[in-house]
Design a protein around this nucleic acid. Structure first.
Lengths: 198, 198
DNA sequence: CCAGAGGTGGACCGAAGGGTCCAAAAAGGT
DNA sequence: ACCTTTTTGGACCCTTCGGTCCACCTCTGG
């Protein structure tokens, strides 16, 4: 894909993606126009179509891919090693902090809303993000419990859904209470039985 | 608001809302144009603006309000009386069935995405929906546990977030596994200690 | 130094879609 | 029957925005 593209070209392309990602977070995908991107990157229309032949949809897809990566990155290094209850707590806090900071701006929410329909590639980006995320959680759950495969998988999914739900509600209300409560409740069964809460 | 409006007028207005709601569910708010609504309701542009002076935004707001009501209605009669573990299970199944049936079509998702930004009224619709929903869950949790106020509230929020998360992931992947797992895990602490799972 | 590639600028186009307007047709009241 | 109010039809305007086109830079390598 980077064939026939100089360092300068790649830089421009990357600059477009990053700027478009920022705009998308700020105003949502629907309100982000090509002119906005153009203005934000000091580029011209022709460049946008030069680097993204399919136009707008192409850019948005690239942004989605970029953002999907950021989502997982924000959870590191915790997500990579959830082998102890302490690291789970660290992860929980990292997630909480990250989304608290983001606030209303949701990286993927508006993207999927805009691209999701009739765009199989967008769908696959989200799906593989979830898969990767779930896999990491599965490894972590497996490390701190002795449940069988299926139970572990279900637990991981419930944790993942808790994050998603908390984030969605944060988007809609601006309150972090839900994410906090959901996350805490979701991982609490992983807590070693020392001073456990029912 | 219904001042100076005949029965016929109210009927037309209502017809517009219902049709717009359906279109919104099918194609998302962003892709629903006034012409679509016009065609689906056999009305004219002037009527749209007659009944919704603010235009498109006005219609979308009305749809959001309408859909918010539908969300809670779909959970009845269970949501109204969550006083036993059995009714909690019934509710869980009702939610699962409802969203499985809806599948990809999310009533409020695209609405909030489109209206959420800079529309305080849309925000308040979502907020009060969540509040009402949470209140019902709080009553239910309180009925089956002996936890103190704050713990009850947190539990209710975690359950609510679990539903939201499961639904979001259903939207994105088409799979109900997440909602199932999240819902099960979220209410499992409410289960009476007879054959409890850790 | 001179091709020829990649990179850039910006004018231009056409469709889509939200919103306005006016006038005609029903409904309602007296 | 007659006047008023509501309801309806649809032509029209105008902005926005994605997308096209072509001419002009600016590198790089031989």
């Amino acid at each position: 894909m980077n064939k026939g593209m100089t360092a300068k070209g790649r830089a421009t392309r990357h600059r477009i993606i990053v700027a478009a990602a920022m705009l998308t977070r700020e105003k949502g995908a629907a309100e982000t126009t090509l002119d906005d991107v153009r203005a934000a990157t000091a580029t011209s229309k022709s460049q946008l179509f030069h680097y993204f032949p399919e136009g707008r949809a192409d850019i948005l897809a690239a942004v989605a891919e970029y953002e999907a990566g950021q989502v997982l990155e924000a959870q590191q290094p915790y997500l990579g090693d959830l082998s102890t209850w302490e690291s789970w707590q660290g992860w929980r806090q990292a997630v909480l902090d990250h989304y608290t900071e983001l606030g209303q701006k949701c990286p993927l929410g508006s993207l999927t809303a805009e691209l999701g329909k009739s765009s199989p590639q967008a769908r696959s980006i989200v799906t593989s993000l979830y898969d990767e995320w779930e896999a990491a959680l599965v490894r972590g759950v497996k490390a701190v419990t002795s449940d069988e495969e299926e139970a572990v998988r279900r637990r991981a999914r419930s944790i993942l859904a808790a994050v998603q739900g908390g984030v969605v509600m944060l988007q809609g209300t601006g309150r972090t209470d839900y994410l906090d409560a959901a996350l805490t409740a979701a991982i609490s069964p992983l807590q070693p039985v020392t001073a456990g809460t029912a």
